[in-house]
Design a protein around this nucleic acid. Structure first.
Lengths: 141, 141
DNA sequence: TTTAAAAACAGTAATCATAATTGTTTCTGT
DNA sequence: ACAGAAACAATTATGATTACTGTTTTTAAA
């Protein structure tokens, strides 16, 4: 694996990703940082996200409306995706065991690196849809 | 839900999707059919795929290298995605229970329509990589 | 069976997320 | 300080998917 130099912007990116639980898009991260780093480039965000994935610092949890969604919390946990508003919620009570992976590996003679468990449906906010509380949901049209 | 007219091409699409276990891309379906339907349009394939999803006739199982992958087998089952060759393999021995969904629904006060369980790793063929047996894998670059 | 409205379609152009390229700047170890 | 590596911005390119427009098929009812 490649050796990485230090980089202020990359650090800031990781900081942003790890301190939110909104499972942001590339663009959300970009918008978050461009006030602090006015000459940040979207290309840099994409490139660093790929590096983070390579290094296992960040995982891709879903693709919602054509946009990849990332998570800095790499501990094994599932996700719920609201198909109405695009919100992604952590689900900590199910799956996430390595024993799944091992079972599949031996059954199918393959190497299993990881697995994802993702639920799809309508979130609490959207069900009770009183107020449009989608302010902080990344990837909204 | 919308009322659908009959359509030869749409029928053929569904037939193709349901009689393969390769979890094809839109383009793979298009290429499969264009010998029988020389004036089939890729736009038609995309439009009908979206209709199939709406109607629950087909599910989207993964997004591999930026391409959506479909499955005409809508019975609950998991998938293994080879990150080397893009192959997707059915995994029939895990998950798929509605009780998961119900548990999440009550815990998070949400409506759960479905869930996906997806394993990522290196498939048998790619591990033993003697021959390039990726002939029928959709979505290969 | 005409016939008119609705839906499906081809062909094409437009979008939009992401990737690649290029030339410049910043690190980092020596 | 300096040379090579990595990071970066800016721009351009790519490629999957969607939207649009005018034409053809399908449908159901007269």
């Amino acid at each position: 694996m490649r050796k990485l130099n230090f980089s202020k912007k990359r650090d800031a990116m990781l900081e942003v990703i790890c301190s939110t639980n909104t499972h942001p898009t590339a663009e959300w991260i970009y918008n978050r940082l461009k006030s602090d780093y006015p000459n940040l480039s979207l290309g840099t965000v994409y490139r660093n996200l790929n590096l983070f994935k390579e290094q296992g610092l960040v995982v891709s949890v879903a693709n919602v409306n054509g946009q990849e969604r990332f998570d800095g919390n790499t501990s094994a946990h599932a996700h719920f995706v609201c198909t109405k508003c695009g919100r992604i919620i952590d689900v900590d009570c199910v799956g996430g065991s390595k024993s799944f992976d091992n079972r599949i590996a031996s059954m199918y003679d393959c190497e299993v690196d990881r697995h994802t468990i993702t639920f799809y449906g309508t979130c609490s906010s959207c069900r009770h849809a009183h107020s449009d509380s989608t302010a902080d949901v990344p990837g909204l049209k």
